[in-house]
Design a protein around this nucleic acid. Sequence first.
DNA 1: CAAAATCACCAAAGCGCTTTGGAAGACTCT
DNA 2: AGAGTCTTCCAAAGCGCTTTGGTGATTTTG
Lengths: 340, 340
Amino acid sequence: MNLKQLSHMLALSQTTVSRALNGYPEVNEETRRRVVDAAKRHGYRPNPSARRLATGKTGMIGYVLPTGTTVDIDPHFVEFLSGLGDYARSHELDLVLSPADADDQETTYRRIVANRQVDAVYISSPRPADRRVALVNTLGIPFIVHGRSEGFDFDYPFTDIDNEGAFHEAARLLVQLGHRRLALINGDDRETFAIHRERGVRRALAASGLVLRDQHVCSLTMTEENGYRAARRLLEQSDAPTAIACSSLIMALGVVRAVRDLGLTIPGDLSLIAHDDVFPWLKPENFSVPLSTTRSSIRLAGARIAERLAARISGLEEGARGEVWPVDLVVRGSVAGAPA
Amino acid sequence: MNLKQLSHMLALSQTTVSRALNGYPEVNEETRRRVVDAAKRHGYRPNPSARRLATGKTGMIGYVLPTGTTVDIDPHFVEFLSGLGDYARSHELDLVLSPADADDQETTYRRIVANRQVDAVYISSPRPADRRVALVNTLGIPFIVHGRSEGFDFDYPFTDIDNEGAFHEAARLLVQLGHRRLALINGDDRETFAIHRERGVRRALAASGLVLRDQHVCSLTMTEENGYRAARRLLEQSDAPTAIACSSLIMALGVVRAVRDLGLTIPGDLSLIAHDDVFPWLKPENFSVPLSTTRSSIRLAGARIAERLAARISGLEEGARGEVWPVDLVVRGSVAGAPA
DNA sequence: CAAAATCACCAAAGCGCTTTGGAAGACTCT
DNA sequence: AGAGTCTTCCAAAGCGCTTTGGTGATTTTG
């Protein structure tokens, strides 16, 4: 059932039927009812390929997926996707993942924009002066950045959490508890979020005349194994930290294992605070010693970004407004006063 | 730069240019070279929207993503995606995720097929007599099932791992080590993979005149918390098992925690084998006691399924061939002889 | 009451590609 | 040399929608 057939059986022109269906004003309400009714009865759905050729609108949002045999997709992605998908569904948007060589995403961005394959894109895990952000900005496709980049001569729209504030609060608490030697087990420090978190910790320490020593900060991809390694390296130093702030729950698993291997205890010998993106399958309260966390649902962020993308596509949102969400500090058993 | 312009500057018809570019035989090789060369020089790329309207081919593979505020996407998905994406990239395929109400995916499948939004789809986490499989089979779109369904009067193409064999082997090993009371901490037993795993364990036990008692099998979604709960329930029974087979590494984390909480040890009091889908961020060899596993890379499965989908789209693969991959049994420190 | 404005509709021209149905010229064969 | 066969190309017809640029009929205005 296509437009031609439908308009023929209604004895109307394609123009009128199309307009009736798309809510244009220049059609009699009575006629519109007839059309809408007939369309529903016959299950008419405009062919998206045709519509897309005519209008350029696709009803899809895009994401360039870095791939490669040695490239791992962040496990956070799936949780983000839950939120994004949940919102997208309610607005009849699909998500297209365009796999790209991790070392050459530009080609793919250019392709999906030149071909008008999607109405908008989002960018995640941005770095300072991220080339992708500059690129999509000049390409002129609507976009939202999940996280923040820095150092451009233009503004851009983003949704981020207050990573600096979160880790500032976490570190401040630890300092207040008497800790003098703090360490940070961070994610990849080429990414902005990691830089912000480190900055937060440093600022909190500085406020008490302390410093974050270089050998007390580790930046690694967020795996259990790296958490373990980092923790061992830190805890076997002569001036081992008495408290650790950790960028991910998965790494925290490794930290806990290292602590146990070394015959230490939490929070007796070491206080631990980790960032929690809120996974359904791994909860900080279920750690052997319930884990204090800075908490922010990455799923909510996904939903929010879908919402903003939809708004930008339909022209409801404009400009380069960035939004920064506050992060909860949730205190549980893994923190205590510094050991004597 | 579109076809019209390009053909005009070549003083050729659109027909010839189109055919030259698409490798049709009825064009002079010399002409083809000229055309291909000019196309490259001017960066001509056929508009996919137009092509898809004309041919119906989209260059995209589809996946219906069940969503909802209470619906969690399986963390395995992201690893599967890595493999799929890596292959898809090399074949210029994009992946479109169509979010659907988890309770009504049928509407979405019908839509993407009716609208010809994708060239093929894949289905994951199938259940016995899975309606999605029956649906896509009748809708006539190329598809591959990741995993297996059962109980149809038709065959269908799938790629699955030998879940039954894997857990049969695991259980057999445990029995050989003298264990008489085995337990199974399984995933959601409405899904085929869980049923097969249970079957494998039962078969191994039966071969030695043993049975898997009902109170020794737990079927839950695969979270750390559920692993913990299941393990506690099992180990606090009067006839607690001396060995556990576990369907996921994430659940195994919970099992290990429960064992520790109860003051027991692995493998002294309990032998443990878990299934490992091979995540980069959580490795069985890094458990406090290195974990024995049945191992199969879900990432490889993703790549394989992309490969088969591409083959079916291009007509290279036909028929309903199902393939079943063997699973490695990797023995590490978490298994030992049954306690006296 | 004539002129202007509004209403409700339509024919046809895109959007940019693929594919059908030739057709002209070159080549082969008897 | 004439018929048949390739080879190589083209004009034009889709694919199914949106949108432009109207046209009569009806209502409003000065």
